[in-house]
Write a protein that binds this DNA or RNA. Sequence first.
DNA 1: ATAATTGCAAAAGGTTTGCAGGGGT
DNA 2: ACCCCTGCAAACCTTTTGCAATTAT
Lengths: 177, 177
Amino acid sequence: MTRKGPTTVWERFRRFLAGRGLRVTAPRRAIVEAAFATTTHFSADQLLLWARQRDPRVSLATVYRTLGLLVESGLVREIELGGDRKVYDPNVAHRPEHLHLICADCGRIVEFDHDQLGRLLKQVAHELGFEIVSHRLQITARCERLRLTGHCPHHDHHARPSTTRSPRRPEPPHAGA
Amino acid sequence: MTRKGPTTVWERFRRFLAGRGLRVTAPRRAIVEAAFATTTHFSADQLLLWARQRDPRVSLATVYRTLGLLVESGLVREIELGGDRKVYDPNVAHRPEHLHLICADCGRIVEFDHDQLGRLLKQVAHELGFEIVSHRLQITARCERLRLTGHCPHHDHHARPSTTRSPRRPEPPHAGA
DNA sequence: ATAATTGCAAAAGGTTTGCAGGGGT
DNA sequence: ACCCCTGCAAACCTTTTGCAATTAT
């Protein structure tokens, strides 16, 4: 495989900035590096925390502003899974578009690709006379195995009361012990 | 065969209320009747306007509260198409679940069913060990014909986006005197 | 009579923006 | 220097909620 370290992404963002006459700043660097230090979805305020580990002076406003640039540059995708909280996905480079399944039991988000489904989407849009710009598929589902065997392969160790469908706490990026 | 007038829906809601020990009130009636007087998606404040045509005393708070009951009763579906504005769909009774295509050009929402796609969704969830509770598929797409011929078959005379990607610009319908 | 319901207005909660000072080029 | 960027806090916008009065049952 090729090396696809954070440096590459930063370079791409740098070029994006240059092409727009925008400037390279410490906050932007901290935010971008933080964003690509994880492979998970993250929310704006989560990113703020991570970015502040690199540069404590970063503010939430700049996180939002930089996130906007990252989305515009195509390096990050904005996903609206719940209604209240947007999450951002730094995996655009590796996977063009993926689908989301949200467990109604534990709130866990299972991210996956499905070629056949993707092709069908494209075809359906075509039938209607459209060309897909982007799509969002969100399946809310109940874990069959949990019901049948009492054990869910996707279920977290610390079980979460299945009351809410949008857990306020996704999980930390790296299990840092 | 069956009469499917608005009365039926109201009756069903009435029964839902009774079953919960809730009361039948004028605001609720105005709101529910307004909700089912259309076949389109609507937002909460749109519904407020319609409800007020039947009973000017209705407040936005009660619209939201009643909308919650309608969703719980299964008579109306809540859809989050954009991120900021929820829309509600009174067509649940006629079509169990439909998919949404949003035109990137005019903002129009094309609502459709697709058996094959629906089946595939179910199958995909199954492969992952889940049973679908609900799903949301939103395709943002550009009208091919509009680009090729300058004319879009789905383009309305007065394109009225049902609340889509107008973030914070409530543009007035007509520039009045 | 009793308790659910309502309207009002203020609160909430995530995201955006105005402004004056800081900093990249 | 020039003017883009930043942090702070206030503004925004839709949805929710506390409260006292109202009203269905």
